[in-house]
Design a protein around this nucleic acid. Structure first.
Lengths: 174, 174
DNA sequence: TCTAAAGTGGGACTCAGTTCCATATATGGA
DNA sequence: TCCATATATGGAACTGAGTCCCACTTTAGA
């Protein structure tokens, strides 16, 4: 819906009123459904985050934390890869649009908070120890690798498959 | 100047007009000097990025890329640590304010672009190969570690010193 | 002292997002 | 079937950030 407009004319060039016109709803109704224009593209953030956390919790207890994170990302990148060219187009739009890139990073920050307790546990950190940067660091690193892999995947015609790119990205730092 | 107002009443609660009133300038003049309200706090982004890049370029040629990045961050964390309590307060404001946190991450994204060529070179990547995610991944990981260390440093009264925290953060992933 | 350029301010404008209130449309019970 | 009560929708006015354009003033250089 709104995505089509964004891809046609660009995100900044599309006003909320344009979206409302196409969807045949009022501005009031729009802002009842979406907290902001950006959020039309980031609806499933919470669900996806929870699914990722579930996947991480399900990893073997003895597995190294970094390997567990890598493993927990398999469902996510499969889901993205299944989206094919549509997901790539969306990715490129996000990368090219400052406001959307910002919202994307905010999503990552949210996921970081969500995963922190489980990663901290796997690292053997004191629960609630705000002075221990390790869990945050490891999740942020993993997210950085994921984003780097996604960007390479989306912005290159002849890029490798997503799992290969993610392995390449994550191996550089381990 | 504007920082004081933000620390007093909060960022969202301070309007550009408030800042103009205190600085005794007009809105026009304000927006001639700062592209946005957020940017009153992120003036030296380009300079700091360039200094970081210089520090990285100055690292020994044979050094491992990850170690070179760690070493190149020494001047930066020294500078931040020298700021002491003022920097911590600012850090906490940024972390607690979504719009400022977003601007902070945007700064990181800018630095990532700035460092990419040099890191790619040190990784032996093909110049301009957008399908190689390694440089982006490594820089994003380093920035994630830096932010985790900064957050731990700023938000805990009895936190260790910044270099120790950064080492702890970066070692978790290497 | 004159002149050009740079700095400053005023004011109108667009658009996102908020708030409050009025109206319509379901839904469930008597 | 009818009524009462949510719940969804729309309208309208408002705030605040950011843009644009034009007028005025200050500064600097010849």
């Amino acid at each position: 819906m709104a995505v089509d407009l964004f891809l046609e004319r660009g995100f900044e060039e599309t006003t909320v009123e344009d979206i409302c016109a196409r969807a045949e709803i009022s501005r009031s109704t729009f802002f009842r459904y979406f907290p902001s224009k950006e959020d039309t593209l980031f609806e499933r953030t919470a669900d996806t985050g929870r699914a990722w956390l579930d996947a991480l919790v399900a990893r073997p207890a003895g597995e190294q934390p970094w390997a567990a994170l890598r493993g927990s990302l398999d469902p996510r990148i499969e889901q993205l890869a299944a989206g094919g060219e549509n997901v790539k187009r969306l990715m490129r739009l996000i990368v090219a649009t400052p406001a959307l890139a910002a919202r994307h990073r905010e999503k990552n920050a949210y996921w970081q908070e969500l995963l922190r307790p489980e990663v901290a546990r796997r690292l053997g950190a004191e629960p609630g120890d705000t002075a221990d940067p390790r869990a945050d660091a490891m999740i942020a690193a993993a997210l950085g690798c994921l984003d780097a892999a996604l960007k390479a995947w989306a912005s290159s015609d002849r890029a490798a498959e997503l799992p290969v790119l993610l392995d390449r990205a994550m191996s550089v730092v381990d």
